[in-house]
Deep mutational scan, measured.
Amino acid sequence: KKVIATKVLGTVKWFNVRNGYGFINRNDTKEDVFVHQTAIKKNNPRKYLRSVGDGETVEFDVVEGEKGAEAANVTGPGGVPVQGSKYAADR
């Protein structure tokens, strides 16, 4: 997939743990970017499923997906693991 931007910061608008996807609002352009659970590179080690939490600040790359921009290599700011959704089960 073609990389559009790297190391972008954004805020998770919403993320559905059961369906495994959601949207991140970019801090720079204010665009909403699709995020799939497979794009989460550093999950919270205490969580079973990969997820990001609503309102969480994340860092990610933006790539060209089939339906427009989507997030890739999602981590917390500075490459730390994401916090994850409060609806995702703990280990």
Rank of each mutant, 00 (worst) to 15 (best):
Ser51Ile: 06
Thr29Trp: 02
Ala39Leu: 02
Asp28Ser: 02
Lys2Ile: 12
Asp61Asn: 09
Gly78Val: 07
Ile24Asp: 01
Arg26Glu: 02
Val8Gly: 01
Glu66Gln: 14
Lys1Thr: 05
Gly65Asn: 09
Arg46His: 13
Thr11His: 12
Pro45Met: 12
Val3Asn: 14
Ala88Asp: 10
Ala39Met: 13
Val62Thr: 03
Lys30Thr: 11
Thr57Leu: 14
Ala88Cys: 08
Lys41Asp: 05
Gly79Met: 06
Tyr48Leu: 12
Val62Asp: 01
Lys86Leu: 10
Thr57Val: 15
Ala71Asp: 00
Val62Arg: 00
Asp32Lys: 02
Ala88Thr: 08
Val3Asp: 07
Gly10Gln: 01
Lys30Arg: 14
Gly84Pro: 05
Val35Lys: 01
Gly53Pro: 04
Lys41Pro: 03
Tyr87Asp: 05
Ala5Val: 10
Arg26Ile: 08
Val8Trp: 00
Asn44Cys: 10
Ala69Val: 15
Asn44His: 10
Asn16Pro: 00
Gly55Met: 10
Asp28Gln: 02
Val74Lys: 00
Val58Thr: 03
Asp90Tyr: 13
Asn73Trp: 05
Val8Ala: 05
Arg18Gln: 13
Gly55Val: 02
Arg18Trp: 06
Val52Pro: 04
Lys30Glu: 12
Arg26Tyr: 03
Val63Asn: 04
Thr29Glu: 03
Val74Phe: 00
Phe34Gln: 02
Ala88Pro: 06
Tyr48Cys: 13
Val12Asp: 01
Glu64Trp: 13
Gly68Asp: 03
Lys2Ala: 05
Lys67Arg: 12
Val74Trp: 00
Ala89Asp: 12
Gly20Ala: 07
Ala89Lys: 14
Gly78Arg: 10
Ala72Met: 11
Gly84Cys: 05
Phe34Trp: 11
Gly53Trp: 06
Val3His: 08
Asn16Trp: 02
Gly78Cys: 11
Tyr48Ile: 11
Gly20Asn: 07
Val62Glu: 02
His36Arg: 05
Ala69Met: 15
Val8Leu: 09
Gly10Arg: 00
Gly76Gln: 06
Glu56Thr: 05
Gln37Asn: 11
Gly10Phe: 00
Ile4Asn: 08
Thr11Asn: 12
Lys41Ser: 15
Lys2Asp: 06
Leu9Arg: 11
Ser85Gln: 06
Gly84Tyr: 05
Thr6Gln: 13
Arg46Ile: 14
Arg91Lys: 10
Gly78His: 14
Asp54Lys: 15
Lys67Val: 09
Lys1Trp: 03
Thr11Ala: 07
Ala72Cys: 09
Gln37His: 08
Thr29Gln: 03
Gly53Met: 13
Gly65Cys: 13
Gly53Asp: 13
Gly68His: 09
Ile40Trp: 04
Phe15Val: 00
Val33Tyr: 03
Val63Phe: 10
Gln37Cys: 07
Glu66Val: 14
Val35Thr: 04
Ala69Thr: 13
Lys42Gly: 09
Gly20Phe: 02
Ser51His: 07
Lys67Glu: 08
Gln37Val: 11
Val62Ile: 12
Ile24Gln: 00
Gly68Trp: 04
Val82Arg: 04
Val33Thr: 05
Glu31Ala: 10
Tyr21Arg: 02
Thr57Ile: 14
Val74Ile: 09
Lys30Leu: 14
Glu56His: 03
Glu56Cys: 05
Lys30Met: 11
His36Tyr: 08
Gly20Asp: 02
Gly55Gln: 10
Val33Trp: 00
Val12Phe: 04
Gln37Met: 13
Val33Ala: 02
Ala5Ile: 15
Asn44Asp: 08
Gly68Val: 03
Val35Ile: 15
Tyr21Asp: 02
Glu59Met: 12
Asp28Leu: 02
Pro81Asn: 12
Asp28Trp: 00
Arg91Phe: 13
Asn19Gln: 15
Lys30Ala: 14
Asp54Cys: 15
Leu49Met: 10
Leu49Gln: 06
Ala69Arg: 14
Thr57Ser: 13
Asn73Phe: 07
Lys42Val: 09
Asp61Cys: 07
Lys86Asp: 12
Asp32His: 03
Phe23Cys: 03
Asn73Thr: 04
Lys2Gly: 05
Val58Gly: 00
Val8Lys: 06
Ala39Cys: 06
Gly55Ser: 09
Glu31Arg: 11
Thr29Phe: 03
Val80Ser: 15
Gly84His: 05
Gly10Pro: 00
Gly84Val: 05
Lys13Glu: 06
Asp90Asn: 14
Lys41Phe: 14
Arg50Ser: 11
Ala88Val: 12
Thr57His: 15
Asp90Gly: 10
Glu64Thr: 12
Asp28Met: 01
Thr29Asp: 07
Asn16Asp: 04
Lys67Leu: 10
Glu31Tyr: 05
Arg50Gly: 06
Arg26Ser: 03
Arg50Asn: 12
Phe60Glu: 01
Leu49Thr: 10
Gly68Arg: 06
Trp14His: 04
Val33Lys: 01
Lys42Met: 14
Thr75Pro: 00
Gly76Cys: 06
Asp90Leu: 10
Gly55Asn: 14
Gly84Ile: 04
Ser51Trp: 05
Val8Met: 05
Val8Glu: 03
Pro45Tyr: 12
Val8Ile: 14
Val52Asp: 02
Gly65Ser: 13
Asn73Lys: 08
Val82His: 04
Asn19Phe: 15
Ala69Phe: 15
Glu31Phe: 05
Val74Thr: 01
Lys42Gln: 10
Asn19Leu: 15
Phe60Ala: 01
Asn19Gly: 10
Gly22Leu: 00
Ile40Ala: 01
Ile4Met: 08
Glu59His: 04
Ser51Glu: 06
Ala71Pro: 00
Glu59Gly: 02
Thr57Lys: 11
Gln37Ile: 09
Thr75His: 06
Val58Glu: 00
Tyr21Val: 03
Phe23Tyr: 06
Arg46Pro: 04
Glu56Met: 06
Lys13His: 08
Val3Gly: 05
Thr6Asp: 13
